[in-house]
Nucleic acid binder design. Sequence first.
DNA 1: CTGAAAGCGCTTACAG
DNA 2: CTGAAAGCGCTTACAG
Lengths: 249, 249
Amino acid sequence: MVTIRDVAKHAGVSPATVSRVVNGLVGYSDETRERVETAVQSLSYETDYLARGLKTRQTSVIGLLAPMVSDALASQVMQGVEEEAQERGYAVMLGRTGAKSAYIAGYLRTLRTYRAAGVILISAVITPETRQLLGPNVPIISVAISDKSGSPSVAIDDEQAAYDATRHLLRLGHRRIGQLTGDPASIYVAQPRKRGYPRHDRSRLHPGDRHRQLLLRKRRRRRGRTAAAGARPHRDLRDERRDGRRRRQ
Amino acid sequence: MVTIRDVAKHAGVSPATVSRVVNGLVGYSDETRERVETAVQSLSYETDYLARGLKTRQTSVIGLLAPMVSDALASQVMQGVEEEAQERGYAVMLGRTGAKSAYIAGYLRTLRTYRAAGVILISAVITPETRQLLGPNVPIISVAISDKSGSPSVAIDDEQAAYDATRHLLRLGHRRIGQLTGDPASIYVAQPRKRGYPRHDRSRLHPGDRHRQLLLRKRRRRRGRTAAAGARPHRDLRDERRDGRRRRQ
DNA sequence: CTGAAAGCGCTTACAG
DNA sequence: CTGAAAGCGCTTACAG
């Protein structure tokens, strides 16, 4: 393996100077720089990240933890993270937060000992333990869950999203609307979603949709039997249903 | 950070001995082992992978290169690789072989300088350049493309698969069968797929399927106009079509 | 502008 | 069974 010493010898300078040039620091003449660069080229020298990381206490590794690697949302995020990381010279290390949260501790420990430059958490909550396992100096970013603990996060307003999605269906004239929030015990965003849904009331319906609603009502009557055979709506939807019925009377 | 020296001091032994115990080597008394383990526990010592890797010239990192992170097949493979890796104490480093093959060189270089223990290549061909960039000591495994260069690979027989898939359709009585192989210039498996398809001839049809074929033929006649309006079959399929027609005469 | 030196945290012959 | 020492390849005050 070609080391910084080899380059130094080849260029007739000290290893310290090679390091400075390679890292783009200050403190060398143009001529020196050129000699070093030539030597780097002809020996095809490559910095040893392990050695550098050991010395500087930091590598260009970033940790990327997802619930599942093959998760649909996570895949998309991972793809994006990977693209940007590679563009900026970072390497991405993969991990799963998975079902067993014991796993995540292991990954975090690994990332710390590889001196990761930062960690991106997809669909996972940053707990005090997370912080502690990673040490105080590793930045954490959470994606898809907005963090309350002070870390930056990239996420949507889940409550508002539930509200908007429901409104969309209401505008289309639908009245029997189910909501699948996920189990609040394990799906963190279930709560805000559950809050967003019932914020609706009749007065919020868009007035311009009257016509369309009439159409839909007719169509529904025609499909009467099919509709009646449908699944019973979720308990939380009772109010909306009653609301819809009253309008029809 | 807790180092091996701290543990050594705490346990009243030398760093060398701590290293031996931690790595499960031979050469220490039971009593020593216990003292070291206690010290490791109470200080919650964690091996520095960077330092170890620098010394041993090998880390527990394995590289995982896929065409796209969000690719459907790759996602599944990645998930599996990640599970097994984590079980065995390896960390997975991500990379994309992507459209630009120039990228892959960068990843391979990175993996070499992180002293990766091995590399898994999904849907990519192992070229001499691959080998060269990674150095002679890093094992490479290719997935989804069977390697001819001597590396182990996990893949299906694409030619046979194309043959089998075609046979399946033939058995169902279909005669107008298109094949989407992908562009042979960029999709490596297009060639074997293309070979597998036309290996069929009439005599290979499963005799037990006669009855079903008759049924299908009737049905097809009924839908005559629709069928006629369908897309023209691929040029490569002409023989199969003619074959099918003759049987009807 | 440049180099000698120390040290990051570990491992591993070597010697006892 | 155990320890002192050298060294992996780099960076960075320090001194000039």
